[in-house]
Simulated assay, not measured.
Amino acid sequence: MFDFGINGYQPQWHHSLAQVAVTHGTRLAHLAGRTLTHTWLVWDNDADRWFPDGPVLLDFDGEQLEINHQRLDAVSVTWNTINTATPVRWPGTDLNLRWHDGLQAGLHGQRLDTVELLEWTSADLARGTVALTFTLAAQQLTIYNALDENGLSYTPPDPRYRRLRLYTTSSPAHNAVELEDLPLLRDLLDAGADVEDDDGTGWTLLHHALDAEHDGHVQTGKPLHADTTALLLARGADPLRARNGVTALAEAQRCGHWLAAEIMQAWIERHQTA
């Protein structure tokens, strides 16, 4: 594995927003509330400028986040693996590189409010590339794929990005259910999200879907739908799994989500006779 001239560095490559969310979403979300205490870039001493092929390091109160982009589809996220006291020696070159605090002045000492994952949606070469954006107390910082290298931005993200805000109180999959974002939920499940993911109280994705679908119907007056429920059942969610003694099926019947109840009842009957 290419180590970018950094002894001991082993980048972990991901190729979609969903992969990053499933693997690192919870840990990224828990950075919120910490202070950005230090930042590091790889610097080209001879050219006196940032060398964007090397990883970008953000230290939040001792939790060092290491971000790197490569090719048109790869982003690496690692934690606490790089020692900036170690020299950077790019293999096969005579580049004169070092670690340097080169981010925009004033970032240090700011409290982190939120972390979001971004996916570029415009129909161009960058389509599908993943970025991470950090909303600090008085500044925005986005680290994005600048077509086979890292890019930095200090302004709000372009509206053509698909955005997933990360929360400490819910997983990315629960967030997708709440937003009723079926493509995102599909991608997260494809990337390894647990279809029986619960919030620690037994509130599974399926229970959440029933609540979101029924509440949306009641609050907006729009027709009742059960597409999130159907997707979760198709992926193996158990309608007989109980929360506080109440199954998802019983909950749908109780709250009046008759469409989901019909679908789940048919699912149960089919699986009992299979």
Rank of each mutant, 00 (worst) to 15 (best):
A252P: 03
K222C: 09
W43V: 15
M264N: 02
R111Q: 15
L117S: 02
A137S: 15
D227R: 06
H217N: 06
T39V: 08
D59M: 13
L112G: 02
L58N: 02
N7G: 11
H38F: 08
D46N: 09
W203G: 01
V115M: 06
A237N: 00
G25H: 12
V195M: 14
L112N: 07
A105I: 10
D61H: 09
L125K: 01
M264Q: 10
H207Q: 13
G216H: 09
E180L: 13
T35S: 14
L233N: 06
M1G: 14
T247N: 08
A85H: 04
F134E: 09
A234G: 06
W40P: 15
E180T: 13
L206D: 02
G200I: 05
R243M: 13
Q70N: 12
R162K: 07
V56E: 07
T247G: 11
V246W: 04
A29L: 01
K222V: 04
A209S: 15
L240E: 06
L185S: 12
D187A: 15
D199C: 14
Q19K: 01
Y161I: 01
D53Y: 10
N145T: 00
R49T: 14
L147E: 10
W267A: 15
W99P: 03
E116G: 08
E196W: 04
P183W: 09
W99V: 07
L41G: 12
H271I: 08
T86F: 03
V75T: 10
A176I: 13
L240H: 00
A266W: 02
D61T: 06
L147C: 15
P159H: 06
L132G: 06
L231W: 08
H217T: 10
A250H: 10
A131M: 01
D238F: 06
N96D: 11
G128D: 00
G92L: 05
A32V: 09
L136N: 11
R160N: 07
L147I: 14
V218P: 05
